[in-house]
Design a protein around this nucleic acid. Sequence first.
DNA 1: AAGACGAAAGTGGTTGA
DNA 2: TCAACAACTTTCGTCTT
Length: 315
Amino acid sequence: MTDQKQDKRRNVDEESLVCPECGSTDIVVDPETNELVCRNCGYVIHEELTDYGPEWRAFDPEQRTRRARTGGPLSIMKPNKGLTTEIDSSNKDSRGGKISAKHQNTLNRMRKWHRRISMASSYEKNMAMALQELEKMIDRLQLPKKIADEAAYIYKQAVKKQLIRGRLIESVVAAIIYAVCRMNNIPKTLEDIANFSNADKKDIGRAYRFIKRELGLKIPLTTAEIYVPRFASALGLGVEVQERAKEIIRKAMESSILSGRGPTGIAAAALYIAAIEKGEKRTQKQVAEQAGVTEVTIRNRYRELKELLGLNIEE
DNA sequence: AAGACGAAAGTGGTTGA
DNA sequence: TCAACAACTTTCGTCTT
């Protein structure tokens, strides 16, 4: 089973694909979904490798008949795992005839249980809405399916613990996507996420902190480093500059003077310095624009980095 | 004329009483 | 709930290239 996946991974390396979004060649196959994913920006290159076939395998004709069924593969992205049943509420049989009292009792009981099972205190409805929203967001943000699956899983836990009550589904979904991105070191800011959501940044942030606390999510600190590739490619800066910027950041981290500062600002300043050093200067304005900070912030970080590392910047 | 610099005041979010 | 606080932004005048 792993043979296939190893083959695919090798193919990717041979063709040395380039991410159309950020130009990076750091592309891997997500073994869970068989998608090509850019490790810099999280962009899903294309989904041709996705297998839409059944999730089972048949080893002989007998098994094939037994296992074959209608409907798509079971998916966590579908409430009820894609299987539903409805019981009509009128007391008519399939030909429109009246149903006897005895059978009506049976039907009533069936309806009662059906309601209990399928509605389960509006759990299903909530999940359906959330999963729809989730899919929309993942699509807009060009994130890999793996993120969607992890997010769906966390959302389900949140619903079970009744953490959604009093919150917009949209803000919770956005918050969870943000959380999963951070857990996977995908360089998306809260702002990035908010730009694609109907919920506003404030609500998303609040939901994020709440969910994180209540579910005890382990979320690593955001480092400035993870933003380097993203900003660099947006500015058309090469690997050399990126490496230098990362080096600057790493050194700065050691003296922990920069703690408390926004990681995007640090990444921006480090890139600004690295670009000058390597003779590929970008203006503060250009860098600021891509990093989503102001020139002033870059200047402040720039000044701090410069004196911290004793850099003499000459072009 | 454009870029870089930094002071000063304003904004939104966090923290701790 | 409120005030203090730090980080960041906005704005603007000045200096440099």
